[in-house]
Design a protein around this nucleic acid. Structure first.
Length: 183
DNA sequence: AGATTGATCCAT
DNA sequence: TGGATCAATCTG
């Protein structure tokens, strides 16, 4: 159960996005832990990506995307739902990966497998993990109570599918980029 | 298909 | 300072 360090995120955003598939999002509340395997993400890559909040430049909201990698970017959308992103790449290059869906593993079955269920959609992920703006601009680490873990699940390239990002129709040619990755 | 909901951003 | 917009979700 290795905690993924900021070094992992200080790499090309598309590499990080693919690398996050199969990793675990872990939330600690008191002595309770919530954990789920990441199965769907989207990359928001650089200042020219019109789908990215950072394409409008550095603002109060987007400054975290311009900051160091390994920090959480959490924002409210449609006045109701939070979205969780992890900042990638070096300082001053605005980029992040949105965590869209996770798989929650349950009890062991008699045949040695495990039951599981899916939390699909960034708003639902935040609701399930009890994530709100408190985490914005905080690090992904044990000390904040929200981090990414490597549990050595092997994800091969052929297991990874890609598609267009969701809900970015306004983004011109960037809307068609295949920056959504899922298992 | 339509309602919800409020922070954010930019044009007035 | 106001009004459009939004990395979504729920209900019918």
């Amino acid at each position: 159960m290795m905690v993924v360090s900021s070094k992992f995120f200080n790499r090309p955003t598309l590499t990080v996005a693919r690398g996050l598939l199969g990793k675990f999002l872990v939330r600690k509340i008191g002595r309770r832990k919530i954990a789920g395997m990441i199965i769907e993400v989207e990359a928001y890559d650089g200042p020219h990506d019109k789908a990215s909040h950072a394409s409008r430049g550095r603002t109060e909201r987007t400054r975290v995307m311009f900051g160091k990698s390994g920090y959480w970017y959490v924002y409210l959308i449609y006045g109701m739902y939070y979205c969780l992103n992890i900042v990638t790449e070096k300082e001053n290059y605005p980029a992040a990966v949105l965590i869209r869906s996770v798989e929650i593993f349950g009890s062991q079955t008699s045949l040695g497998g495990r039951t599981s269920r899916y939390i699909c959609g960034p708003g639902r992920v935040c609701k399930y993990f009890k994530i709100d703006k408190w985490f914005n601009e905080k690090t992904a680490s044990r000390k904040t109570g929200l981090w990414i873990e490597d549990r050595k699940i092997k994800i091969t390239p052929r297991m990874i599918k890609r598609g267009k990002r969701i809900g970015v129709e306004y983004a011109g040619k960037w809307k068609n980029r295949l920056l959504r990755y899922y298992i």
